[in-house]
């Protein structure tokens, strides 16, 4: 008999957990009829999720920045001190494979002659960060 009761509950549980016919609006109304502040509930959960999402993005950005700082200068030295010609020289050396195949691959399809000094510096920094990924 106890087994039968347990089986019956398991069957009735389908009503609670598996019946998907009820529309979200009906669920909402049913909860509200039990005194649940559904609007407040949604606002609280959404706000918590939004905050968590933003926090993760900030953390990831900080981690990325920290990583970039760590590798900065590890391949090409202190780029801040170099002028355009020297930067161009480094890019050409990288194109020629002097700093390995990964960096050489990053040089493909780059028209470096037209790049400004700042752009060349950024390109070289990007290459440095690429090889650590």
């Amino acid at each position: 008999m106890s087994d039968e009761n347990l089986k019956l509950l398991k069957n009735l549980d389908k009503l609670l957990f598996e019946d998907a016919e009820e529309a979200p609006d009906e669920v909402r109304r049913r909860l509200e009829s039990k005194g649940v502040d559904v609007k407040g509930l949604i606002a609280r959960v959404k706000a918590a999720a939004g905050e968590a999402y933003r926090k993760v993005l900030v953390e990831e950005a900080a981690e990325e920045e920290s990583r970039r700082k760590q590798v900065r200068g590890s391949v090409f030295g202190n780029l801040a001190e170099l002028g355009r010609e020297k930067l161009l020289e480094l890019v050409r050396a990288a194109e020629a494979g002097q700093y390995g195949t990964e960096i050489m691959a990053r040089c493909r399809n780059q028209k470096v002659e037209n790049l400004s000094e700042a752009d060349l510096r950024t390109l070289l920094e990007d290459m440095e960060s690429t090889i650590r990924k």
Partner: peptide, 19 residues
């Protein structure tokens, strides 16, 4: 139950933001 729903929602939000 609200805490549980919030925790789950937040955990997926964190998952969406992380790589």
């Amino acid at each position: 139950p609200e805490d549980i729903v919030t925790d789950v929602y937040v955990s997926y939000a964190r998952g969406a933001g992380s790589s």
